[in-house]
C-alpha cells in the first residue's frame, strides 16, 4: 500500500482573504452607522447677520503696533507732548509718538487706568486708589483707598479736578488735584434727571473730556453716554441700544471712549469688538473704524486713546500689544 504524502499548504492566501473580509466588514460597519445626533434649529444660536454687519470697507487701516515690555499691560494714555504711556504690573513704559521706547518708571501694583494731565502729572488708578507721579516718574502722592468694594476703571484729569470712575460703587468720584474728595457724579437722582449709572462690567466704564473740556461718562448698562458739569449736574445724555452697527449691543457698551482733535467721539465696543465714530452731541453714528474682522474673539479691549495725529491706539489683550489705526491715505474724513 502506498503511503500518501501530504504537501504543506501555503498559509498566505486564506490569511489575506480573512484580512480582506475583515477590512470590508469594518469599513461597512463604520460607514453604515447612523449619523450622530445633532442639535435642532431651536438650540442653535445664529447671530451671523449681527456679527457680519461690520464686514464692510472702512476708511481706516492698521498701520503699526507697539509691543510693551512690561507684564500685564492694562492701561494706555497719550501725554500732551505726544508720548505714549502704557501702564501694567508694577511699571509704566513711555514710548515716543513713533513707537520708540523712551523710558520706564516703577510702581507698586497693577494699573487699571492712566491719565496724563496738561502739566505732565501722571494719575494712575489702581483697584481702590489713585497714585500721582511727576513728569520724571517720581511718586508724588498715594491717595486714600476708597474701600474694599472699589474697582477703579478710568481716570480723567483737568486743571482743577480729577474724575475717577469707580465700577464697584457705580459712581464717578470728583477729586481736587491735591487728592481731596470733592463729590460724586452719576448717582441716581430722579429729581435732577439723573437715572443713575448702570455698570454691569468692569470692562465698560470710562470717562473722558471732549475737545471743549466737557466730561463725558459712559453709562454702559443703558448703552449710551452722559455729559456732566464738574459739580455733577447732568448736561445731556443719549442712549443707543441696538443690534445694528449704529447702536450699542450686549450687556454694556460702549466699553471705552476717546475724542479726536475735531471732537468726534471714538468708541470701543465689547462682546462684538468694534471701533466706531459718533457725533458726541447728537449720538449720531458716523463710521466704523474696525470690527470683528480685526478683533475676531470677544475679549474686550483694555483701553483706547487718540493721539494728536488722530491715530487711534488700542491696547489689545489678544497679544498684549498696542495696535494703531489711522485713516487711509492720511486725510481726515
Amino acid at each position: 500500500m502506498k503511503e500518501s504524502v501530504k504537501t504543506p499548504k501555503n498559509p498566505w492566501p486564506p490569511a489575506l482573504c480573512a484580512v480582506a473580509i475583515g477590512g470590508v466588514f469594518f469599513y461597512l460597519l463604520a460607514h453604515s452607522a447612523p449619523d450622530p445626533p445633532r442639535k435642532g434649529s431651536n438650540t442653535n444660536l445664529d447671530v451671523s447677520d449681527i456679527i457680519n454687519a461690520d464686514r464692510i470697507e472702512t476708511n481706516f487701516e492698521e498701520t503699526g503696533s507697539i509691543v510693551p515690555g512690561l507684564e500685564k499691560p492694562s492701561a494706555l494714555a497719550i501725554a500732551p507732548n505726544g508720548n505714549i504711556y502704557i501702564a501694567g504690573k508694577d511699571a509704566v513704559e513711555i514710548f515716543g509718538s513713533d513707537g520708540e521706547a523712551l523710558s520706564r518708571f516703577e510702581m507698586d501694583g497693577t494699573a487699571k487706568c492712566i491719565n496724563i494731565a496738561q502739566d505732565g502729572t501722571t494719575f494712575i488708578g489702581l483697584r481702590d486708589h489713585v497714585e500721582v507721579f511727576d513728569v520724571d516718574g517720581e511718586l508724588l502722592a498715594k491717595w486714600e483707598s476708597l474701600g474694599p468694594d472699589t474697582y477703579i476703571t478710568s481716570i480723567a484729569a483737568d486743571a482743577e479736578n480729577v474724575f475717577v470712575a469707580d465700577m464697584g460703587h457705580r459712581i464717578v468720584h470728583r477729586y481736587g488735584r491735591n487728592g481731596e474728595l470733592l463729590g460724586q457724579i452719576g448717582k441716581k437722582d430722579l429729581n435732577n434727571d439723573v437715572l443713575g449709572l448702570v455698570v454691569p462690567s468692569p470692562h465698560a466704564f470710562d470717562v473722558a473730556f471732549d475737545d471743549e473740556g466737557t466730561l463725558w461718562v459712559v453709562n454702559s448698562g443703558r448703552m449710551g453716554l452722559e455729559a456732566y458739569r464738574s459739580d455733577g449736574v447732568l448736561i445731556t445724555s443719549w442712549y443707543k441700544p441696538s443690534f445694528k452697527l449704529e447702536g450699542f449691543s450686549g450687556c454694556c457698551n460702549p466699553s471705552h471712549i476717546a475724542f479726536d482733535s475735531a471732537g468726534r467721539l471714538i468708541t470701543a465696543d465689547k462682546g462684538l469688538v468694534r471701533l466706531k465714530i459718533y457725533d458726541v452731541t447728537s449720538g449720531e453714528f458716523k463710521e466704523l473704524i474696525a470690527g470683528t474682522k480685526d478683533f475676531p474673539t470677544p475679549q474686550p479691549l483694555k483701553d483706547i486713546a487718540v493721539d494728536a495725529r488722530d491715530r487711534i491706539l488700542v491696547l489689545d489683550p489678544r497679544e498684549d500689544t498696542v495696535r494703531i489705526f489711522e485713516q487711509k491715505g492720511g486725510d481726515r474724513v
Binding site: 438650540t43 442653535n44 444660536l45 447671530v47 456679527i51 449691543s249 450686549g250 450687556c251 462682546g271 470677544p298
Partner: peptide, 29 residues
C-alpha cells in the same frame, strides 16, 4: 432697579449651551 438675577432651572435645562454662547458674545460670559 435695573438689576436682575438669572438662575438656571436645571430640571428644564438640556445643556444646549445657547445661552452660554450668547453670554460670551454679548455679555460677561
Amino acid at each position: 432697579d435695573p438689576y436682575y438675577e438669572y438662575v438656571i432651572d436645571e430640571d428644564r435645562c438640556i445643556g444646549c449651551a445657547k445661552c452660554v454662547e450668547a453670554c460670551l458674545l454679548f455679555g460677561n460670559a
